[in-house]
Design a protein around this nucleic acid. Sequence first.
DNA 1: GTGTGCCGGATTACATACAATCGTACGTGA
DNA 2: TCACGTACGATTGTATGTAATCCGGCACAC
Lengths: 220, 220
Amino acid sequence: MSTTGARRPDAVQLTYQRLSDRIASGDVQPGSRLKESALAEELGVSRTPVREALRRLAADGLVEVHPNRGAQVVAYTPAEVADMFTVRVTLEPQATALAVPRFDAAGLDEIEDLAEQMTRLVDDGRDLQRLGELNRRFHECFLVACGNKALAAAVTAVVRPAVVHRTFHRYSGEALERSMSHHRELVVAARAGDAEWASSVMRTHVLAARHTATVRPSAP
Amino acid sequence: MSTTGARRPDAVQLTYQRLSDRIASGDVQPGSRLKESALAEELGVSRTPVREALRRLAADGLVEVHPNRGAQVVAYTPAEVADMFTVRVTLEPQATALAVPRFDAAGLDEIEDLAEQMTRLVDDGRDLQRLGELNRRFHECFLVACGNKALAAAVTAVVRPAVVHRTFHRYSGEALERSMSHHRELVVAARAGDAEWASSVMRTHVLAARHTATVRPSAP
DNA sequence: GTGTGCCGGATTACATACAATCGTACGTGA
DNA sequence: TCACGTACGATTGTATGTAATCCGGCACAC
């Protein structure tokens, strides 16, 4: 959890972002070693911020730090990814049920806007990077609105590694359409103030995602 | 989550432990500022390991780091503590249900041993520090045995701040006895292989704890 | 042939020096 | 008297130098 609310990109923030992106895009393979000095020179910063960025990535579960041996990108098995989604299946519908009666007008507008943007994005060009970011913000809206910080923290702790590791890349066209449909239904249910409905949709949404993330993709 | 498996106390590990203890014991008040240079001099190390220890504490949710303003011990409201337990109410029974059919003989012996130790400790002298540690290990057994690392990580992320912040100090004698009784019942249910029973006991156990942690203590 | 001990290269862990940033207090002007 | 701008002090952010640690390979004994 990044507790520093840095708005301007410091060296640490920049390094963290770059490394995070590289891992997400598969630019660096899971299992590969990350050398402090090499990264520092490559990104034009000193070793100190690189060091701190690596520790933050370790706290997020993206890399493992071995004493005196440096950092290594973690590799998740399909079973572990499924486990992450299983936790989300439990927590996110609960957060949704809590969030629905607490949404204000601005919050409802925000999730509606995000849902529409994502739908357009799928119809257009399939910018998966941007789609992933919008999706993250969409789900974050529910977590923030639920008013239970601990619940939000629990989900975030579990989601980050899974979300960053090649999400959406294995979605078929049909699965992607279905996912967007869930988003839109969530907005309608939230506007209706029907917590039970919204919660159920969220549960369905995460279960479908688990299936997609777990099953071996047929066509690359 | 401490990903570095350091066995010998490095400067970072030592600093982290010391600060963690101080916060747990209430030696440093919530809201008080933690200055890197002061801590470094006090603990006889340089600022670098202090800095890293503070970031780890921030990742654990024990302190907040403000950019260019240093670290500050977080203060939880009763509502936030209740929220933490609410998440535990959801997750720990689930972990328990998964763990029961997966326990081996050694695991069952371990939780039985821990439950007995805790019971004796309550009858004897009330070493709350040690009781808290045993309790942590007891719950950890179920989280490890459940086989879902993400689930364990989610619970850990939520529990750590609450656990470190003076738990057990507000337990009455009766509540403490009841808590120990739950532990023993969990062992019996686990030995019987009854996941549903064990899960229910765990749920009761956490709900009771939430009540104790939330209600204003009558006698200090 | 296998196991053990030692040495060298590489890399991190820590210490310290310097630069940038923020908060605060004071002084000035309206 | 209050608002605003500015300068100073305190503290963190970054860079770099030094020491400790670990892994791999090789020689040697059994």
